[in-house]
Amino acid sequence: MQGSGIEVLFLGSNFARLLEGLWVTMRISILAVVMSVPLGILFGLFMTLQNPIAKAVSRVYLEFIRIMPQLVLLFIAYFGVTRAFGWNWDAEFSAVLVFTLWGTAEMGDLVRGALKSIPQHQYDSAQALGMSRMQTFGYIIIPQTLRRLLPPTINLTTRMIKTTSLVVLIGITEVLKVGKQIIDVNRFRYPTASLWVYGAVFILYFLACWPVSVLAKYLEKRWR
């Protein structure tokens, strides 16, 4: 069985374990997206408020989250907050929290952008047709905003999946970690294991993100 070494992927439960590892990061991303979308919509509306304090607060939050590498945020949540407040968060909880905070900021900015991109004459002509403020929002503004929002929201999901790969660096056992374990166990029998295992992880991530990107692109084209 000393071929290319690709067999190592299918040895025992190796492949299933890799998939389980991938599921760990997927689970974190899905949880974070599910929470970011409603929170982000609220945050986006909050950002359109004319109140100067609301503006300043949301601005600082958005800019800080945006300018810091996600890994730094992850470190702050995992190492910093745990110690400072004596809360013993486990790594996965920290990860979901950080990615939700990040997702909320990104989503909020998307919502604000989408609301701002509806031209004034849409409001004007709705009112000229005798619609009330509620009707203007309900029939004209919100449907258009949603259309503009859906593709970038889907894109946010792929970004989320890609970014959650970082959690290995705060010690969560996900697909890269599982891969490393497989490589370590088979180091002598399959010296080329790292090529195949990391190659497989690469392709698994691609298979997880690519269909979602294609969907986003399709919707963007259709709804433009």
Binding site: T158, S165, Y198, F202, C209
Partner: peptide, 12 residues
Amino acid sequence: SRNTPLLVQLFF
């Protein structure tokens, strides 16, 4: 390139 994380690219 757009659908895979940099960390995974680096490991490979």
